[in-house]
Every structure is written in structure tokens, then in C-alpha cells.
Design a protein around this nucleic acid. Sequence first.
DNA 1: AGTGGCTCCTGAGCGC
DNA 2: TGCGCTCAGGAGCCAC
Length: 271
Amino acid sequence: MPELPEVETIASDLREKISKQKLEKIEISDPSVINLKNNRTSVLVQKYIKEINRHGKYLSLVLDDNQIVTIHLRMTGRLIIAPKNAPLEKYERARLIFENNSLIFADIRRFGKIWLCDEQNHKQETGVCRLGSDALDPKFSFNDFKKALKNKNGVIKKYLLSQNIVAGIGNIYADEILFLSKVCPDRKVSTLTESELKNIYHNIAPILKKAIKNRGTSFSDYVDTKAEKGKNQEELFVYGRGGQKCLQCGNKLQKIRIEGRGTVFCENCQK
DNA sequence: AGTGGCTCCTGAGCGC
DNA sequence: TGCGCTCAGGAGCCAC
């Protein structure tokens, strides 16, 4: 599933391939995945892409009149760059057609969403307004992290997944971050020591950056804009490895459910 | 306010 | 071969 590193990989592909291009047409093959009010597609066309931003798992294409196309891929969404007249992609939901190519949004499960908004209301309409700091924002400090977790009663994994605490971490990287921090995912936040919290905080950025370098984790559905898989799945310690041997100590990895999410950890390495 | 559980959705994998 | 079940889970929503 696309988390911060996968969305960043896509964003950097898009910066390379569609920046500064004119958006000529928007074709919607499944209206249920598009949030648009007042038939805005007509407002958007013939505008140029001014910038391409990412916050957490949200991607925004900002047009030169400050209209914004916001995209969230959720579980199975894909963004594929294709020739202008490319045939209908399997599970295609929408297509943005540019001067030189097109950007196809395909999604098996239809959890993904596209919002067409103007600058004034885009944060409210898309939910971006509820996000915490982006996990790779250099301004996101240990104190911010600690403060966001203050007085919380739940288990640590839940808050790593909470986009309003820190934005961009999903189920794969939450398990990896906790493994490398040697903290059990079901530990109550209130029982974590200062140094455990620091470990977690200091593992977030390097793990995400390594995954970006590997062009993302393709565990099931994720592919980049060329429909190619990433290779970070080859470097995972725990996610998807329940029942197998811990790569550090050889013990059998445990698989449990936390907050409805499959969770893998090592009882021996993680306290 | 915080939290747990339900919902959306479809394909893969499995047992019988 | 095919049926039914379970699992995958991001995030909005609702009840408590």
C-alpha cells in the first residue's frame, strides 16, 4: 500500500514528467472516486502545473491559477504516466491529459480519491487540514513528537499510524520503525521511556528515506508511474514475515492484530 | 476529547 | 471446478 515513500517516489516522477505542462482535459470513468463540486473540471483545463507537493500520503498538483488537484491512493491506487492516447487502463477511474502525455489514476478497490478544489478550501475538503507534521519535515522535532503523544492512553503503533500525530507512516513502516527501535507495538505510550521515544523518533526518517531510495515497497499492489515495482520489500525486517525467523535473532516472529491491523514483531528483540 | 468498531471495496488464497 | 470464507487496511464516521 502506498505510504510516504511510495507517494514521494510518485511525486518525484511527476515533477520530472508533468511539471509546467498544460492540463488539456480531465476524463472521469468512475465518478465515485472524484470529489468535485460545481463541475469544476471545466475550470481546471487549459491551466499549467505550477508545483507538485506531498504532505503525508496526499499528493497535490497545484495549477497556475491556484486550483489544486489532490490525490490520495489509499490501498490500491496507482498513478501511471502513459502516452496521450493510451488505451483504457485496467481499473482506470480518471485520467488527466496533458500536452505531451497523460496521467492515469487506476484503483482496484476504489478507496483512493481525487479532489478538485481551489486553494481556499482544499485543506478542509480533502482532510489535509487534520494532518500532523509530515514525517520527513525537517521542522518536525523530537519535542513535537513527544508533545503529540503526551497524555495518550493507547498503544504506540496506533499513534504511529495516526496521520494527525505524524503524517505519512502506514502499516508497513510502523512495524519496521518499531522493530528497529526495539519497542513492542502493543506498548502503551505512557510506559515508554524517554530513550525509547527517542529511538522511535530517530528511526522514522532514516527508514522512510531508505525506502524512497529503493523507490518504495511493493508488497502487493504498489507500483510507480512506470508501473514498475519498488525494491524496498527486500529489505523489510518484519512486515509480511509473520511466522518466519527474525533476521536479527532467529526467533519466530509473532503476528498479532492491533487496531484491526496485522502487526508483526519479534518478542525477543522488541521490549 | 479520546477511543473502539464499523464501513467502504475487490482480489487472492485457502479448505472442502 | 467452484463455492464460501477470511484476509489485506487507510481513513471517515459514529456511538459511547
